[in-house]
Design a protein around this nucleic acid. Structure first.
Lengths: 242, 242
DNA sequence: AAGTGGTCTAGACCACTAC
DNA sequence: TAGTGGTCTAGACCACTTA
């Protein structure tokens, strides 16, 4: 995957942007980039499109391509980034060592809400997986996930003690490529305070979401309660009507 | 704008999909579409890419292009797409009556951070606008906005007591179409507690963002502190590329 | 093996911005 | 007018799925 032309260009430009290789906050024009990288202008455009979709750069027709200044900020702090679906990979890409502690692992009948969210029928069962995620001995997230047993019949205590998404991709040869997320804030409860080392007036950030496989099947409903210092959800909204 | 090839194809296909013109939930292959529409395959791909980004279709390499069954079953899932950036409109569409109380309105020199975020030069000035938003007599948001005076030289106390975005669109004939948002949680401070009727252990949700005009010009830097019960940010994440 | 989507090229022409 | 990004084409070859 990593040998694709547009991906290489995209990654290289991203790296250069972060290394402040363009102090004037402006990228070379597309035709020059095409020459520099010895690739077609189309490939340059494709790489730039991705960076633009991620909000890292923006283009002004007739004028040039510029770096979004807000993207450069807050890079020193650890945070969960909206651009990655999996928590494990999200942490790894930031050089963190993720750790997972399994709190509980059960099979329960899906209630009505889960039936709706996961397109299940009455009587269907789901795994209920509670986990505590940490990095560098700092717990930052309590995660409760629900997965239909018929989608992943072979889940074991061993598997769910690691990255479930990686298991799905490597062993089941499917990809988790979409999710609906809700993000909100809430006072912490006793469990939060104990597990996440929070004082009573410190809140949690909550992410609720449904994750989908690449064929459109809803795969997991997840409720994530995060230490408030470790949630920063970045998102780029475009209203350019297609 | 509507005469672009890929847009026409995209709209036409979208309409056909909704009219159930593909009962087998499968689109013709790209080469056939290219012939049917008498456009290049690249243009077909571009149209399909947009539909895929919107979650309407998904592609399977070697197999074909298929209609997302979820799109037909539950269209509310994709609801965030039509949503508006402006708070005022966002509330109105939910049947709420928004109210704005102007807390302060000043002109100050842009500090270094604002200069960067808003593409300003040293010595440039910005408006600093602090407002409290309520609906049905329930205050829910403290908003601090910074807008370059050179972008909107005619801002008055009267204007900023209402919807600034609406003013921009109606009087200045520009559109706010993009924003870069960070969402996080934080304990409330004394001001939050007073203005938003929060107790000490109740948090705020924070949205920090830069809003851009449709030509890419950064228009406003905004810091929004929300009563935690009134922040729920919904988003749809796709990882198909990258 | 046939058919599908994915990647990439080289180049033409258009639309907008800056000077 | 010169330079920028935007659109579009025609075609080559690759990677994957299905039979």
């Amino acid at each position: 995957m990593a040998d694709l032309v547009y991906r290489k260009v995209m990654h290289d430009l991203k790296q250069k942007i972060m290394a402040n290789a363009f102090p004037n906050k402006r990228l070379p024009d597309e035709r020059s980039l095409s020459e520099q990288y010895s690739v077609s202008r189309s490939s340059i455009k494709r790489a730039l499109k991705i960076l633009a979709d991620q909000g890292i750069i923006f283009k002004k027709r007739g004028s040039g391509t510029f770096i979004n200044p807000l993207f450069m900020k807050n890079k020193t702090i650890f945070h969960y980034e909206g651009s990655n679906l999996g928590i494990t990979d999200s942490l790894k890409s930031q050089g963190m060592t993720p750790k997972i502690k399994l709190l509980s692992f059960k099979v329960i009948p899906a209630n009505e809400e889960l039936q709706q969210d996961l397109f299940l029928s009455p009587g269907d069962f789901v795994y209920e997986i509670k986990r505590l995620r940490s990095f560098d001995n700092q717990p930052f997230m309590i995660e409760t996930g629900f997965i239909p047993i018929k989608i992943a019949p072979e889940l074991s205590q061993d598997i769910v003690s690691g990255s479930i998404f990686n298991y799905i991709e490597e062993k089941m040869n499917k990809r988790v490529t979409r999710s609906f997320l809700s993000i909100l804030a809430s006072p912490s409860d006793k469990t939060d305070q104990e597990l996440l080392n929070l004082s009573v007036n410190e809140p949690v950030g909550i992410m609720e979401g449904i994750f989908f496989l690449d064929d459109g099947t809803p795969f997991e409903v997840s409720n994530m309660r995060l230490h408030y210092k470790y949630l920063r959800y970045n998102t780029f909204v475009m209203l350019d009507d297609y």
